[in-house]
Nucleic acid binder design. Structure first.
Lengths: 204, 204
DNA sequence: TCTGTTGAAGAATATTATTCTGTTTTGTTT
DNA sequence: AAACAAAACAGAATAATATTCTTCAACAGA
């Protein structure tokens, strides 16, 4: 049932049991029915609790959505940082970014699906600022890490703004297609090809 | 006010005037407030009409959303087909796909923004099947067009499923970033770089 | 002009999100 | 252990919102 321990990691302990249960069922509902079509009542029914409990823990629907979103995003980023820590060159860093992304999506398809569809609602909602700040932070850290390698060995595509899009764009697009069912082959099968293609695209 | 004539093209004539007006204001609301936070009342207020008129034209909120979505998608695809028609080699085709995509987004930023955020809701809603069919069709047509060139001159990345992601992924990712404000430079400035990078990534 | 059809309005209804009040459980202090 | 405070939970009451329904007006074709 539990596809992973993202929730356990983030909301540990006995007292948070219902909180985790609500989130898990909400995740299911959002993915199955869509964010807007998911009602508090539907979530309530699936975990046999009360509206009072739900609102006590999350305040409102946006609160549930955001809690799920940030939990997923943090887990994904954590995986990225772990992989990236082991990289010793720009080339290895690029491979780490792509591989950790693909692996995470394949390991957590439900969470990944949710992440794609919840970004816009969260970006518009009351947690707008928190999301923006996190994105700026993450982006900056990644940029510094990449710059730290220098690019003596090969000449890298110039406008730095483009770099991240070139690296993650293809994988992201493929993962979306895979999660929506348009393509059948697991992203992991193309790990190597994605990384190599991207690396080629970077040398100018 | 009217960023383009997408609505005029799709719903021409005097009798569809209110229909277009409703759609235009709805587009504004969806982008400004988000899909879920946009109320029928807010749309009604912005075009000074009645709920009756709105429901007469679109049935429900999903109906407005879908009408906008398909209008935008068709316009985008139309532009792609025009550009692609002039291509005489695989290389030119790849350039056409990327350039028409970037140009369309820059020409229609509001529509592009909407397209990104409305995909999930539409994919879950009552027009689910229509969307799927359109996607399958578009994908197939594009695939056939690309295959038609053969690949005698250069060896192209093997798994065909990956091809589309490699081509459009970087541009898509960058356009999202640009529309969300994370990067400032217009995608059009990097037209050449995106196309060249992608083309390098394809040769294996 | 007549007549059926489409466009439009707004009140009435149904659905859903949210608040509020009270009760129980849990943890902590004495 | 008893008393207290804080957090967890339940469910009725309320508010916000989507949708339906009934009515009237504009319009095209006979």
């Amino acid at each position: 049932m539990n596809q992973s321990n993202i929730l356990e990691n983030r909301f540990p302990g006995r007292r948070a049991a219902l909180k985790r249960e609500i989130l898990e069922q909400a995740l299911y509902c959002f993915n199955e029915l869509g964010v807007e079509a998911t009602t508090i009542d539907a979530i309530k029914a699936r975990c046999d609790t009360s509206v009072g409990a739900i609102y006590h823990h999350f305040g409102n629907k946006e609160g549930i959505l955001s809690a799920l979103f940030f939990a997923a995003q943090d887990d994904q980023r954590h995986r990225l940082e772990q992989e990236l820590a082991g990289a010793n060159s720009l080339r290895e860093a690029v491979y780490s970014i792509i591989w950790s992304y693909l692996d995470w999506v394949v390991d957590n398809p439900e969470w990944a699906r949710f992440l794609y569809q919840a970004r816009s609602p969260v970006a518009k909602g009351p947690f707008q600022e928190e999301l923006t700040n996190r994105n700026i932070q993450n982006y900056r850290k990644l940029k510094e890490r990449l710059i730290s390698f220098g690019n003596d060995d090969i000449k890298i595509v110039q406008p730095f703004e483009m770099l991240f899009s070139l690296i993650i764009g293809p994988s992201e697009n493929y993962c979306r297609a895979w999660l929506s069912g348009r393509v059948k082959t697991s992203p992991q099968e193309y790990r190597k090809e994605f990384a190599e293609s991207v690396w080629r695209s970077l040398q100018s």
